[in-house]
């Protein structure tokens, strides 16, 4: 992940789905361009986002309603992006999935 940090990124998070690189809003063009050059590959997505300072923990029951809310919002043709600060435990997530 040195490539990302050298390119001016502030933070890199890697999980089983891929790599998420965060940088200052003003530097997004610069960082993504030099990263693409360094890696020889374009990113899957490059965009300004709203990142929550702190997560709000939420239980399975409310979490299910919340996910429904977010999903319905995203299905609206006028809506481009939805951001939220929810935090659902793995256990509760499994419960919601099972429903």
């Amino acid at each position: 992940m040195m490539a990302a940090l050298e390119a001016g990124a502030d933070d890199v998070i890697s999980d089983e789905d891929g790599h998420i690189i965060y940088c200052a809003f003003e530097n997004i063009g610069e960082v993504s361009t030099s990263l693409a050059k360094e890696l020889g590959a374009e990113a899957e997505s490059v965009k300004p986002i709203f990142k929550p300072h702190n997560g709000t923990p939420i239980d399975a029951e409310k979490g299910a309603t919340l996910l429904m809310l977010i999903e319905t919002l995203e299905e609206d043709d006028d809506v481009q992006n939805v951001y939220s600060n929810f935090e659902i435990s793995d256990e509760d997530m499994a419960k919601i999935e099972a429903e």
Binding site: A4, A9, S14, G18, C23, L39, E44, I49
Partner: peptide, 22 residues
């Protein structure tokens, strides 16, 4: 609520580039 969020840049790379980046 937006005061609880930071406006920042996000760049996503798929996992298959993992080896290159290490």
């Amino acid at each position: 609520v937006s005061f609880m969020f930071d406006r920042i840049g996000e760049i996503i790379y798929p996992l298959k580039l993992a080896m290159l980046m290490m």
